[in-house]
Amino acid sequence: MKTKFLILALLMQSTFAVFSQPKTVEYKDGNQILSGLSILPAKQLKNNPGVLILPAWMGIQDHEKEVSYKLADLGYQSFIADIYGVDQRPNNSKEAGAKAGYFKKNIKEYQTRIQLAMEQLVKQGANPDEIVVIGYCFGGTGALEAARANMKVKGIVSFHGGLGRDETRIIENIIPKVLILHGADDKYVPKEEVEKFQDEMRTSGADWQMVYYANAVHSFANKSAGSDNSKGAAYNEKAEKRSWEAMLNFLKEVL
């Protein structure tokens, strides 16, 4: 009987001990204190690749943590960025909309927060030459901005993120590879915005891909988004699984 319990314990340990305990990391943007989350895999892949995770508009939530744990299970080191700051996190969707809206209008500040988080990912041990940025919703917008700014990353992945760009901004060549995972019925990203984004990618000379998922709306990869497409944001299990596989293939390609 003791032998059976020992075997069971070892099996559980091998199943769940795939990453170190999440580590809270404080850093600063000027006087603003930021607090991100670093997750190290128990066994890293060759070359210590890193994935920077940019959260949706509510900030670091269970969804972003779940993503980081799944990446750790595959050997990727990750860091979840804090875009708002420890004393600036939204308490509800109204506050989140206002705060996310501020950074969308002040892109340079958003890009700075992304860059600072990337520096923390490297400080925690990730290879600075082997980094990909991924983001969800508002974070997907940020991932695209990392590409537009030509940050030192191999590629970016945007899950149901905004694609808009201030048309007064000059379109420059984009070096990182770009993967856009998009709900085919996402009403938060109008057709005109999609078309302008695609024109931008062509003009920029980017190596880009855009994948549409049927019957999927905004937030299709987030289990907490509910299941009612009529609300504009809802979870779609099939789209989530397909988009996750698309991202993994992308990571294998660029890292």
Rank of each mutant, 00 (worst) to 15 (best):
N47G: 04
N47F: 01
N48C: 03
G50A: 01
G50R: 00
L52M: 06
L52T: 04
I53S: 08
I53W: 02
L54I: 14
L54C: 13
L54Y: 02
P55N: 08
P55S: 10
P55F: 04
A56P: 00
W57D: 00
G59M: 07
G59T: 00
Q61K: 14
Q61A: 09
D62P: 05
K65G: 01
K65A: 07
K65T: 12
K65W: 01
K65M: 11
V67G: 02
S68G: 09
Y69E: 14
Y69I: 05
Y69S: 10
K70S: 12
K70R: 14
K70H: 07
L71F: 10
A72D: 04
A72K: 06
A72C: 05
A72N: 08
L74T: 08
L74P: 06
L74G: 06
G75A: 08
Y76C: 02
Y76S: 06
S78N: 04
D82Q: 02
D82V: 04
D82R: 01
Y84G: 07
V86G: 02
R89H: 12
P90L: 10
N91I: 03
N92M: 07
N92G: 05
N92K: 06
S93G: 05
E95K: 11
E95N: 02
G97K: 14
K99I: 15
G101L: 10
G101Q: 13
Y102Q: 13
F103I: 09
F103M: 13
I107L: 10
I107G: 06
I107V: 15
I107A: 12
E109P: 00
E109H: 04
Y110R: 11
Y110K: 05
Y110A: 14
Q111I: 14
Q111K: 14
T112Q: 13
R113C: 02
I114W: 09
I114E: 11
L116I: 03
M118H: 01
M118G: 14
E119R: 14
E119Y: 09
Q120P: 06
Q120I: 04
Q120K: 15
Q120G: 08
V122F: 03
Q124A: 13
G125S: 08
A126H: 00
N127S: 04
P128H: 10
I131V: 15
V133T: 12
V133I: 15
V133E: 09
V133M: 08
C137N: 03
F138Y: 15
F138Q: 08
F138L: 11
G140N: 04
G140P: 07
